[in-house]
Design a binder for these strands. Structure first.
Lengths: 257, 257
DNA sequence: TCGCTGGTTTGATCCAGATCAAAGATCGGC
DNA sequence: GCCGATCTTTGATCTGGATCAAACCAGCGA
């Protein structure tokens, strides 16, 4: 009880201006006035407890959600009831953008731990984006980033051997933690082995074996949810077998000298 | 020569107002004036011949492209030079949206046959989107659709057995041809078996065997590039093993009576 | 027209990783 | 603090689809 009251007070206090995450979920260089206008359309929802849904596949689309604290997974469900995880989400990320086109949610979002979110009614966000150029650009950028990210995920699923898949997953998590000011090498996994396996298109047993293998090779230490990366470069080398090589292929196709 | 002059004349004539595709690539219900403003920022580029690039991974991002005729593939290249196809694109689609965030192309786009495109300088498109609400919404919708589509692709790659993958690919093509007013059951593949295999994360040999198998089962007829679908429902049944089930899971989770 | 090249098919073999099975850990509820 | 449920690990086996090998075929430039 006391706890829930504290959370609520926190939420009331959590205006964009004070929020440590706004540089992740909202555009840089917004004027004070714009930030306030933005802040005014945002609802702070009560926390979503572990295992609860923020939204479900098929729900009408009203809002996008900025994740303030906690983490969650998004997934689709096919007609046989099989769940396919699309991604895990960390504070500062915007959820639900894939529902804009059809005005209906095409994924479900389930909390992996207690989650608090800011709800942004999409109609109002759209109006505001017409008035604040930086906001429009930011929305487009966020979606573009999401597309890029899914491209990488596609490449991993299409080709990569299992070691690269897990390495890629861990490196990506590491990057995202770093970007949020947390340790890039020492963190906790909020998702189960099962969820990781699902995301990466492999069997739980394989995940488990790979964690052991990586540990034996001195790449990392795992104990239950806790991961300590010991050799990030080596892990990145494994991962890079998939990621696109932007500077790359110079030797092959771009020799201009 | 004569031919190229004809093409150029065609292009000059090809304003949005006259273009049979604008309802695909551009927003519905735009006023005449808005359509003209839009039309004014568009460059018609000379055709891109088969095998040529519209843009390459690493190129600075200036414009998005609306495909007018022909088809192309987008792919990334990893640091070992392996190509991973992200998708095939048909007339009416907008390309390059994934480069907005980083201002650099993260995929390459290569023509599968002679292609003509409208080039939309992104800065101007962005400005215009601030002035034409329908345009902003349309851009967001297009990206949202692209996200949705990639979710399906992820699900296919993560789980689906090879038959479902190919069935899913064919059904999707079929839908897209239908949406463009072409036959949904009788069409030509502009991409090689190799490209299909790459997209679907499998070996060419497997694609070839599956085409034979589907033909033996009476699902379709293939001869070289030409496909005639004989039993679309059966093909869809195979494919649906992956696609998200929006109305679905009602029996399990939504019993409210 | 011929012969080369790259795409496609078909067959035989092999292996990465799934599946099956079962024993530990952990955790939440009472 | 106990107990069942759930998650994780480890080992043994099996198999879908990759890989290897080779014939085949269409298109095209000389």
């Amino acid at each position: 009880m006391t706890k829930s009251r504290v959370v609520n007070l926190d939420e009331l206090r959590a205006h964009c201006q004070k929020c440590s995450l706004y540089r992740l979920c909202m555009p840089m260089g917004l004027e004070q006035g714009d930030l306030e206008r933005l802040d005014r359309i945002i609802h702070r929802r009560r926390p979503v407890e572990k295992g609860e849904y923020l939204y479900r596949l098929g729900d009408p689309f009203q809002s996008v959600y900025a994740l303030r604290a906690g983490s969650l997974k998004t997934f689709t469900t096919n007609h046989e009831g099989h769940e396919q995880i699309i991604g895990f989400h960390l504070p500062g990320e915007l959820l639900g953008l894939d529902a804009i086109a059809g005005r209906v949610h095409v994924t479900s979002a389930k909390a992996l731990e207690t989650v608090s979110v800011c709800e942004l009614p999409f109609e109002r966000l759209e109006e505001l984006s017409l008035q604040i150029p930086g906001l429009q650009r930011h929305l487009l950028s966020l979606m573009s980033e999401e597309l890029q990210h899914e491209h990488c995920h596609l490449a991993v699923l299409a080709r990569a051997p299992v070691e690269s898949r897990l390495a890629s997953f861990l490196c990506q998590l590491s990057d995202r933690f770093r970007a949020r000011g947390y340790s890039a090498t020492d963190f906790n996994l909020s998702m189960s082995r099962n969820d990781i396996a699902n995301l990466l298109g492999m069997a739980v047993e394989t995940i488990s074996r790979l964690f052991s293998q990586f540990q034996d090779q001195g790449l990392l230490q795992v104990e239950r949810k806790h991961v300590l990366i010991r050799d990030l470069p080596a892990l990145q080398a494994l991962a890079n077998r998939c990621n696109p090589d932007i500077r790359g292929e110079s030797a092959l196709n771009r020799q201009e000298n």
